[in-house]
Design a binder for these strands. Structure first.
Lengths: 327, 327
DNA sequence: CAGATTCATGTTACCGGTAACATCCGGCCC
DNA sequence: GGGCCGGATGTTACCGGTAACATGAATCTG
C-alpha cells in the first residue's frame, strides 16, 4: 500500500480510503490512486485491515450437513446476499453434533467474524457462553424458539409437522406411521416428531411407538424404514417422513415392491426437495423457505452491522402444505 | 495474549508457542499457560497471527454450484481433511461463470489463503495471472489437462463419456442421443460432449447434431430435453445424459409418459448421484470419485505447505462405468 | 573440566493496514 | 477582510500476534 501511495503521490491513508470509502476522496486523486493500484497489481491484505479496524467482513455459518441439498440452498441464499456486500462466508459442517458445533464455533471465533449463523436453537452451554462473549450478531435458523440467543429465522417445525399429519388424518388415513430423522441434538426433528404426536392426539388416533422410527437422512434409510414399519403393522395406510430424502426413499421402495402409492400406502414428506415435484407419483410435502432463510439471515446480520434498528427477534417465514399425488 | 502471559508469569511469545507449537514448551509451563487461557477465556486473534506469520490457515475453493450435491461431496472431502489440520475453508460459487470466478479469486486473494482450489482448467487470463502472482499452491479439479496451472486432481471427462457411449453402442443401441450441460465456460461438459462424439465415430454411428442438446443441470431440463429429442427423431433408442440430474429427469419423464426404460429408451447418466442407484429402474451411470477429489486436493495442498516434495502434477483418480437396469 | 550443544524462554521489531486526530485550503458570511 | 466551516489529505500510533535472534541454564563430549 505504501508503494501505491508513493506511485500516486499521496499518503497510505488516502489509498486506504480509495479502497474502503471512495466517496471521501477527490475524483482526480482517486483516479490517480486507482491507476497506481492497477499498474502495481496491488492486492490489499485483509488480515491487516481486519486487525486494524476489527471488522473482518466474514460471516461464519454452521450447518449440520452440506451434502443434503436442503441446506445447500440456504447457504446459497446467505452467499448471494453477503457477496453483494463484500462479505465472505466461512462454512462449517457440524454433522448434526453439538460437540462438533462447539468446536467449530471455537475456531471460527478466532477469525473474529462480524456475525455468525447457526442451525437450530440447541447448543452446548459453552457454545452459548462463547457466542454471548463475542458480542456479535448471531442468527439461529431453521426453527422457531421462544428465547432465541439473539435473532431467529425460520418456521415452526412443530406446526408444519402437525399440519401435515392432520392433513393426512383429514384425508381419511386411519393409521399414520412416522419416519423421522435422528432426534439426538436436533431440535428440528424433535419438533417435527412432537407435531406428529400432537396431531394424532387431536385426530383421536392412537399413538403407537412402534409406528415411529428415527433414522438418518438417507434414501436407503427411508427405504429400509418403510419395510420395517409395514412388517410391524401391515395396517399402516399412510406414512409421514419428516424429510424428503426419507420420503423419496420410501416412495422408491414402494415402487420397487409394487405397492401402489397412494392406494396401498400414502406418503408425505418434508422440505419440498427439487426432486419431489418430479418424481412419480409427485410427493405431497411441506414446502419450506430454504433459500429465503439464508437471504433473511444474511440481510439481518448486514442490517445490524449497518447500525439499523434491530428487527423483531423471531422471524417466522412460514411453511406451506403442498398436496400432490402421493397422498 | 499479554494478559494471559501476565497471568501465567511468562512472556507473550511463550503463550503463542503453547498455542501453535506446544511441543516447544516445557510441560509444566504449558500447563500454567493453558490454565490461564481457560480462566481468562482467551480467544486468539487469527487475523493478527496471519499478519505476523503470513500464513492464514485458509484454503479458498471455488465450485460452479453448490445446490447440486455433486460438488457438495467434494467440498465435504476438502473440509474433512482441512479441518483436521486446523485449516478453514472459504467457499465461493461461480455459477458456471469465468467472470464470476475471476471476481471471486480477486477478493479471496485479499485474504491471503495458503492454497486455492478451482473447478476445471478453463479460467480467464487475468485469473491465471493473479494465481501465478500469488505464489501459493493451486489445485484444479474435476478434469484432466495437459498443462495444469499447478496441480490437477480429477478424471478424464472425455474418456468417461467416450466409455459410456461405447458401452451403449456395444450393447446394441443404434441411435444414441446426447443431453449435456451447457458448455459455455465449462471444460467438463465440453470434454464429455467430445467423448460422446469420438465414441460415435468409433462405433460407426452417424453424428447428428439434432440428437444433441445442451441444457442446465436441472431435473426439469432433462425431462424437457428428452421430449424434444424424441420429437426430433422418434428412432432414438438410447440417451446419454452427461449428468445424473439430467438423467433422472429423463427417467422420470419416461415413467410419467409410460415409455418403458430401457425397452423403449435406454438412459445412461454421469456422476452416480445418491439417488441413481435407488431409482426404479436404477440408473446406469459413470461413477466418479467426488469425495476423493476433495480429499486429494486438500491433502495435496497440505503436503506442499508442509514442504513435502511436490507430487505428480496431474492426479488421475479414474472413473467407473456402473451398469444398472436403465440400459 | 572447558567448550560445544541443546533446550526453554525472552527481547525486539515488524507484519500491513486503519482510527483518530491534525492540518491545510478555499469559499462563504457578515 | 477576518473568522468560520467543511472537505481533502496527512501524521501518528496503534491493532495482536510471530519471526528472528538473544540469553541463560542444563547436558553432553572427548
Amino acid at each position: 500500500m505504501r508503494d501505491v501511495a508513493l506511485a500516486a503521490g499521496v499518503s497510505a491513508i488516502t489509498v486506504s480510503r480509495v479502497i474502503t470509502s471512495p466517496d471521501r476522496v477527490a475524483p482526480d486523486t482517486r483516479k490517480r490512486v486507482e491507476r497506481a493500484i492497477r499498474s502495481l497489481r496491488y492486492v490489499p491484505n485483509l488480515a491487516a485491515g481486519t486487525l486494524a479496524s476489527s471488522r473482518s467482513r466474514i460471516v461464519a455459518v454452521i450447518v449440520p450437513n452440506m451434502s443434503n441439498s436442503v441446506f445447500a440452498e440456504t447457504l446459497q441464499g446467505l452467499s448471494d446476499i453477503l457477496r453483494k456486500a463484500d462479505y465472505h462466508l466461512l462454512i462449517g459442517n457440524s454433522g448434526y453434533s453439538l460437540g462438533e458445533e462447539q468446536s467449530l464455533v471455537t475456531t471460527f471465533l478466532a477469525r473474529r467474524p462480524d456475525g455468525i449463523v447457526l442451525t437450530g436453537y440447541t447448543h452446548t452451554q459453552r457454545t452459548v457462553q462463547m457466542l454471548r462473549a463475542a458480542r456479535i450478531p448471531v442468527v439461529e435458523m431453521w426453527n422457531l424458539s421462544e428465547r432465541p440467543l439473539d435473532t431467529m429465522v425460520g418456521f415452526s417445525n412443530f406446526e408444519a409437522a402437525r399440519a401435515m399429519t392432520r392433513h393426512l388424518g383429514d384425508k381419511g388415513y386411519r393409521r399414520i406411521g412416522y419416519i423421522g430423522g435422528l432426534t439426538h441434538d436436533n431440535d428440528r426433528t424433535l419438533q417435527r416428531e412432537a407435531g406428529y404426536r400432537e396431531a394424532l392426539r387431536e385426530l383421536g388416533h392412537r399413538l403407537a411407538p412402534r409406528l415411529m422410527l428415527a433414522v438418518p437422512f438417507e434414501y436407503e434409510a427411508g427405504a429400509d424404514a418403510i419395510v420395517e414399519l409395514l412388517r410391524r403393522d401391515p395396517s399402516v395406510d399412510a406414512v409421514f417422513a419428516a424429510g424428503d430424502v426419507l420420503a423419496v426413499g420410501v416412495l422408491l421402495e414402494c415402487i420397487r415392491r409394487g405397492w401402489p402409492v397412494p392406494r396401498r400406502l400414502a406418503v408425505a414428506g418434508f422440505d419440498d426437495a427439487r426432486i419431489s415435484s418430479r418424481i412419480v407419483p409427485p410427493l405431497t410435502t411441506v414446502a419450506v423457505p430454504r433459500y429465503e432463510i439464508g437471504c433473511t439471515a444474511a440481510q439481518n446480520i448486514l442490517d445490524r452491522l449497518g447500525g439499523l434498528p434491530a428487527r423483531p427477534r423471531v422471524l417466522d417465514l412460514g411453511f406451506r402444505i403442498v398436496e400432490r399425488g402421493s397422498t
